[in-house]
Amino acid sequence: MGISDVIPVPVAVDEEISKWTIFGQPVADVWFTTTEKIHQIIEMGPIKNIFNWGRKNSVYFLMQPMGCCGVEMFVFGAAPYDCTRFGCMPRNTPRQTDVMIISGYITRKYLPVIKNLWEQMVEPKWCVAIGECAISGGPFYDSYNIIQNTADYFPIDVFVPGCPPRPEQFLEALMNLQEKIKQRKDKRGY
C-alpha cells in the first residue's frame, strides 16, 4: 500500500517515498502497517536493546517457596541481601511477575499447578532453577513422587547448584539472567 492510496498526493511523491527505507524496510510499510510489522522492525533494530534494558532492570520474581531454597528466597527478597537494588522484587501473584524461581522439588501433584502458574505469567517471562532439587531431583531423585527433569517442562535460563544455595548465589543467578536478557541469549529469545 502506497501513501497515494490514502492521501491524495501526486504519484511522483509516492514513488519517491517508496525508495526510502528504514532498517532495510520500505518506509511506507512502516507508516501504514500492522503491529506485527512494527514488532518485526523492533526485532531488527536497536530499539530492542532499549526494551531489553528496561526488562532486565525490572525482573520481578514470583514468591513461591517450595523447599529449603524457598527460605533462602525469603531472605534474598528481604533487607539483608536487598535484591531491590538490582530491580528485582518479590511479588505474590504470577500475573505481576517476570521471573519464576523454581525453588525446590516438583512433585507429581505439584507439576500441573506449577505449569499453570507459569502459563498465568505474562510475556516476557523467564525461569530460574534454584537448588539441586529443581535441577535434577536432588537428594530425592529416586523417589516415586519427584520429577527429575525440570528442564523438559520449563525453559530454564539459569541453573544454580547448591543444597540450598546461599542468597548470594541467588543474586549471582539474577545478574546472570540480566546479562542474558541484555545479550538476547535467553531461552525464549526476547
Binding site: 512433585t107 501433584k109 505439584y110 530425592f140 529416586d142
Partner: peptide, 9 residues
C-alpha cells in the same frame, strides 16, 4: 503438594 516420600527414601 511437596510430598517427597522421605520415610521411604
Amino acid at each position: 503438594y511437596i510430598h517427597k516420600g522421605i520415610e521411604k527414601i
